[in-house]
């Protein structure tokens, strides 16, 4: 790459250093003023920083975001999953473990006895959602904070998948 030619003033450093100092100082005091105005309740429309104060002030997430899984329910509250093992089969991370059981209703062949997803291994690819013939599994909880002190804590059970997500989560943080 050709080096840009500097003229004499630029090669003297000092004027350029001063210019740089002026830029940073301007940012410093402009932001300081905005922050002070915020303290006294003024200039609400202006932002003094690009920072999002994350846990208190979550960033809007995209509608299509793939987050923690959930299992859908039938109108009677039982799971919609028919334990067809499609998701378990396609999962590239091999992190879905289903044990099938006979469904009491003779018109439905099977239901899951247990349905575990190990989020510690899951790569959030969304293939399980695509593969499901019953639209029984979705990744639209918008729960992105999954952490645990143990590996076992990362395992989602049938109960977690069906019941432990806050329905309020769904539309709130989203932007289309």
């Amino acid at each position: 790459m050709a080096k840009p030619k500097l003229n004499l003033l630029e090669r003297l450093y000092l004027p350029e250093i001063l210019r740089g100092l002026l830029i940073t100082t301007r940012h410093h005091f402009a932001n300081l003023t905005v922050h002070i105005l915020h303290r006294v309740g003024l200039a609400k429309g202006k932002r003094g920083a690009v920072t999002f104060q994350y846990p208190e002030d979550p960033r809007p997430v995209a509608r299509r975001l793939r987050a923690r899984h959930r299992l859908m329910k039938r109108p009677d509250g039982s799971t919609r999953c028919v334990a067809c093992m499609m998701c378990e089969t396609i999962c590239p991370a091999h992190c879905i473990y289903i044990v099938a059981d006979e469904h009491p209703d003779p018109r439905i062949e099977k239901r899951p006895k247990s349905f575990d997803i190990d989020l510690g291994i899951c790569v959030m690819c969304g293939y399980c959602v695509e593969a499901c013939p019953e639209d029984a599994i979705r990744m639209d909880t918008y729960i992105t904070e999954t952490s645990s002190f143990t590996r076992e804590g990362m395992l989602l059970t049938l109960d977690d998948l069906m019941n432990h997500h806050n329905e309020d989560n769904f539309p709130k943080h989203t932007s289309s």
Partner: peptide, 10 residues
């Protein structure tokens, strides 16, 4: 704090 202000951070 100052570096944050200069770089538009908090």
């Amino acid at each position: 704090k100052q570096s944050a202000l200069m770089q538009d951070r908090i």
